[in-house]
Simulated scan of single mutants.
Amino acid sequence: MTNFLKLYRNNLTKAVLGLTLFLIPVISFSQDTSSIIQEIAHAANVPAIQLNYQKDGVNRLYNIGFKNSETKTKIDRNTIFQAASLTKVIATYTFLRLMDQGLIELDKPLYSYYTYDRLAHNPNKDKITARHVLTHQTGLLNWEGDVPSEEWRKTALTSQFEAGTDYMYSGEGFYFLQETMEHITGKTFQQLVEEEVLLPFKMKNSAIVWQEGMEQNAAFGHYESISPRKLGMYRKSNAAYTLYTTAADYSQFIKKYIFEGFGLKKKTHELALKRISEAKKSDGISVDDKHVPCALGMRMQINEIGTSYWHTGSNPGFRCFFLAYPDSKEIVVAFTNSDSGFATIPHILALFLNNNQTFWMYKWRLGELD
């Protein structure tokens, strides 16, 4: 959700190196999978990992660790985690549903639908389209201001480049798209997500905003030191980061959306999985960028064994990811409740997937997207 301190990446690199050395003697065929996941979590200072590995529609669900490192209450399959930027994939599907209904177009400027006040004095306001939002080519920063404060909502948006000419990861773009969808439908984003995603996908343990009663089985976020943060309760929806869900629910969504094209026209589903534009690791062009191009609202991983789809999420105290392979019908979805959670990614992937491949979704920027 937030622009995290760049120092975190240096700390994460050190953590990964230490974790790798720690795990060399730990991961072996003599151990059961749950024990290995527990060791991975412990080595990365992660109180809990909720993980689902799905192959051909069959789930293997793991619930390891604690909701809160101080109370030591164990998580279970219904424990709700913050999905952070995995929310963007839900928002993308919601947009595609509205596009299929003829309510909004991919390449028509969003400002022509909705005069977003924060762009009133932006010279590029008439150039930003949904395609630009979903591939992070709007030119808008990730966030301008202290999200989700009232002051943030009043902050004018500035452009770093003309829409469609470069890449910059942007939550602000997704929020612009959210308010546009709300305007053209007359519905709140919460209503749209519930009607277009949560109900039809039968995601019974998911919500786009905090609901009363969720505190009974919600994971607390944690600092890298494993001390718990306050329980995060987002009362207003944001298409970039406010989804609460479980590994089982999110796997169901990924399976039906990516593998089956559930609820979409065939040509729309095909469009959603196409290579649309290129990502950039930094200001310059990296040879690694070609392995993680942008599809609509998510990333592709192109490596030795083919094409897969992925996204990661970072909210304060939470790190999560999914990686899905249409050809082998495999999905890995993992939620962690720690700022150091991305250090678990390469070891989780190696544990469940064909390890004779390069996991560019991690190698590219160690899990970070911004």
Rank of each mutant, 00 (worst) to 15 (best):
K125W: 12
K125N: 08
D126A: 10
D126T: 14
K127Q: 13
T129F: 11
A130E: 07
A130V: 11
R131P: 00
H132V: 03
H132D: 13
H132T: 03
V133G: 07
V133C: 09
V133E: 05
L134C: 05
L134E: 04
T135D: 11
T135V: 13
T135K: 14
H136E: 10
H136R: 08
Q137W: 09
Q137C: 08
Q137Y: 06
T138G: 04
G139P: 04
L140Q: 06
L140A: 05
L140P: 04
L140N: 01
L141H: 08
L141G: 02
N142Y: 12
W143S: 00
E144L: 07
G145F: 12
G145W: 13
D146V: 13
V147H: 10
V147N: 02
P148I: 11
P148H: 13
S149R: 11
S149I: 13
S149W: 14
S149P: 07
S149N: 06
E150C: 01
W152R: 03
R153A: 13
R153D: 12
K154T: 13
K154I: 05
K154H: 14
K154A: 14
T155C: 10
T155N: 10
T155Q: 14
L157R: 10
T158I: 13
T158W: 11
T158H: 14
S159L: 03
S159T: 07
S159Q: 02
F161S: 02
F161V: 02
F161Q: 06
E162L: 12
A163S: 13
A163K: 10
T165K: 14
D166F: 14
D166T: 04
Y167E: 00
Y167S: 01
M168H: 09
M168N: 06
Y169H: 10
S170N: 04
S170R: 05
S170E: 05
G171L: 08
E172D: 13
E172Q: 07
E172H: 04
F174D: 05
F174C: 00
F174I: 06
F174W: 10
Y175F: 11
L177C: 01
E179W: 10
E179M: 14
E179Y: 15
E179V: 15
T180G: 06
M181Q: 05
M181Y: 06
M181V: 04
H183P: 03
I184M: 06
I184E: 07
T185G: 07
T185Q: 09
T185I: 12
T185V: 10
T185R: 08
G186C: 11
T188S: 15
T188G: 05
F189N: 02
F189I: 05
F189P: 00
Q191E: 15
Q191R: 09
L192C: 04
V193K: 02
E194V: 10
E194I: 11
E195S: 09
E195N: 11
E195P: 01
E196H: 10
E196P: 01
E196G: 00
V197R: 00
L198E: 01
L199T: 14
F201K: 00
K202Y: 04
K202L: 02
K202W: 00
K202F: 03
K204W: 06
